[in-house]
C-alpha cells in the first residue's frame, strides 16, 4: 500500500468560496439540487445544507455575532468524508461495496452497492447518503480516479487559499501542528486539531484545524464505531432469547409428556 493520503483542512483560511464544492461536482458529474432551481435556506450563505449523495463536499457557514457585534465571527468550513482509519461505513456494509484503497482512503464501489443504506446509518459524521441518479449510496472518493493517475483531488486543487491541503498524512500532520503553534503564538488559543491523532477512530485521514467546539461545526465530539454495540447488543439479545425460552418451558411445563405421535386429532385450520 502506498503511503496514507488525505486532507488537512485549515478552517482559519477558508473564505467560503465553495470552489471545492463546485470542483467536486464538476469532476464527479454530480447533479444539482432540483436541477439547480434550489430554494434559499435562509441559513447564512449555506443553501446546499449538508453532505449527501450529490454533495460530496459541503461548505458550512456559522455566524457568531453577539447583539453588540463585539468580536463577531463567521466560521467557514469545508466538510467532507473523513476517510476514517477505522471506517464505520466500511465495517457495516453487507455487500462489501465499501473498500479501503491503496491510499488508505475509503471508497464506495457503485457497481456493488445495492442501496441497503446501512452505511448511512453507520457513519458517525453523517457523510453518506443516496444519489438518486445511481440509486446507490455515495460520498467523497478522495478522487480515487485522480489519485490513481497521479493527480491531486479536484477540490484541494481548486481551493484558492490552501484551506484544503492534500498530501501524505504524516506530512500533513506536521504542517498542521506547526500552524496550530503559530496561531497559539499570535493569540488564537482556541485553535486545535480535530481527528489528527489515532485517538479518534484510529485517525481521520481528513482532519481539521478548528477554533471552536466540534459541535459548533456540526461535528460529533466523540465519534464512535457502530461495532461498540455488537457484543453487548448480541449478549443481551441472547439473554432475551433465553428468557423467552424459559418462559416457554415454564408455560408448557405441566404439559411435558411423551411427544405426541401421529397426526393428532383432525382439527384443521
Amino acid at each position: 500500500m502506498a503511503e496514507p493520503m488525505g486532507f488537512y483542512t485549515d478552517t482559519t483560511v477558508c473564505i467560503g468560496c465553495k470552489a471545492c464544492e463546485v470542483a467536486c461536482k464538476e469532476w464527479n458529474q454530480l447533479p444539482a439540487t432540483a436541477g439547480g432551481a434550489n430554494t434559499m435556506s435562509g441559513d447564512s450563505y449555506d443553501n446546499t445544507r449538508r453532505l449527501d449523495g450529490i454533495h460530496w463536499r459541503h461548505v458550512k457557514f456559522i455566524e457568531q455575532f453577539p447583539e453588540s457585534r463585539q468580536d463577531g465571527r463567521w466560521l467557514l468550513m469545508s466538510d467532507v468524508c473523513k476517510h476514517c482509519v477505522q471506517a464505520a461505513c466500511l465495517e457495516v456494509c453487507p455487500t462489501g461495496a465499501i473498500i479501503r484503497t491503496e491510499f488508505d482512503t475509503v471508497v464506495i464501489q457503485s457497481n456493488t452497492c445495492n442501496g441497503c443504506r446501512d452505511c448511512i446509518a453507520a457513519c458517525p459524521f453523517g457523510v453518506i447518503d443516496m444519489n438518486p441518479v445511481s440509486g446507490t449510496a455515495q460520498k467523497c472518493t478522495l478522487c480515487y480516479d485522480r489519485l490513481q493517475n497521479g493527480l491531486e483531488p479536484a477540490c484541494s486543487k481548486a481551493c484558492p487559499t490552501d484551506s484544503i491541503q492534500f498530501g501524505t498524512i504524516s506530512e500533513l500532520r506536521a504542517r498542521a501542528q506547526k500552524r496550530v503553534d503559530q496561531l497559539h503564538q499570535t493569540g488564537e488559543n482556541r485553535a486545535y486539531l480535530y481527528g489528527a491523532d489515532e485517538k479518534m477512530l484510529g485517525g481521520l485521514n481528513s482532519f481539521y484545524l478548528l477554533v471552536d467546539r466540534p459541535e459548533v461545526y456540526g461535528l460529533p465530539p466523540e465519534p464512535k464505531m457502530p461495532s461498540r454495540n455488537l457484543v453487548p447488543g448480541s449478549v443481551y439479545t441472547v439473554l432475551g432469547a433465553i428468557m423467552v425460552g424459559l418462559a416457554g418451558l415454564f408455560s408448557f411445563r405441566d404439559r411435558t409428556s411423551s411427544l405426541g405421535t401421529g397426526p393428532g386429532p383432525e382439527v384443521r385450520p
Binding site: A121, P226, G233, G240
Partner: peptide, 30 residues
C-alpha cells in the same frame, strides 16, 4: 432478534444509544 442488534450497530440516535433493542425485539416477537 438480530434486527434490534442491527439498529444498535449504527450511529443513529436512540438505536445506537442502547444495546437493549435486540432483547426488546426478541421478547416482543415472542
Amino acid at each position: 432478534g438480530y434486527t434490534g442488534v442491527l439498529l444498535a450497530v449504527t450511529n443513529r440516535p436512540i438505536w445506537s444509544d442502547t444495546p437493549l433493542l435486540g432483547m426488546l425485539f426478541i421478547v416482543s416477537a415472542a
